[in-house]
Simulated scan of single mutants.
Amino acid sequence: MLADNVIAALRGRPLKEYQHKNLGAVVGIGLRKGVAILFNRIKLKDRPAWWFHRLYRGIRVPTLNRRIRVFVDWILASVLKRESVGLIELEHPRGPFTEAATPSHGRT
Rank of each mutant, 00 (worst) to 15 (best):
L90Y: 03
L64R: 04
R41K: 15
A36F: 07
E99Y: 07
H105P: 00
I7V: 10
V79I: 15
V70Y: 05
E91C: 07
R57W: 09
F97P: 00
L90F: 06
F71P: 00
V26S: 01
L15E: 11
L80K: 12
Q19K: 13
L38W: 03
L44Q: 08
H92P: 00
D73G: 07
R66P: 00
V26R: 00
T63A: 05
K81V: 06
G106I: 08
G86S: 04
A3H: 10
L76D: 08
N65L: 06
R60D: 11
H92L: 10
R69I: 06
L23A: 11
L64N: 02
I59F: 14
F97A: 12
G95N: 03
T102D: 13
I59N: 08
K43G: 05
V72Y: 05
P62T: 15
G12P: 10
R66T: 04
K33C: 06
L80H: 08
R13F: 02
F97I: 09
R13V: 00
I37H: 04
P48H: 11
F52I: 09
L2T: 07
G106E: 08
K33W: 05
G30A: 11
K81L: 07
V35R: 04
D46I: 04
E91W: 10
P48E: 12
Y18P: 11
R11F: 01
R60V: 01
R82D: 14
E91M: 11
L10R: 13
S84W: 04
K45M: 12
P103W: 04
P14R: 07
V27I: 06
R69C: 04
N5M: 03
R67P: 02
H105T: 12
E83A: 13
W50M: 06
G86I: 02
I29M: 11
G30P: 14
V35E: 08
F52T: 06
K16S: 12
R66Y: 06
L2C: 03
R47V: 14
A3L: 10
F71Q: 00
A101Q: 08
N40D: 15
L15W: 02
R82P: 12
L76R: 14
Y18N: 07
L44N: 07
R57L: 12
W74P: 00
L38S: 02
W51Q: 14
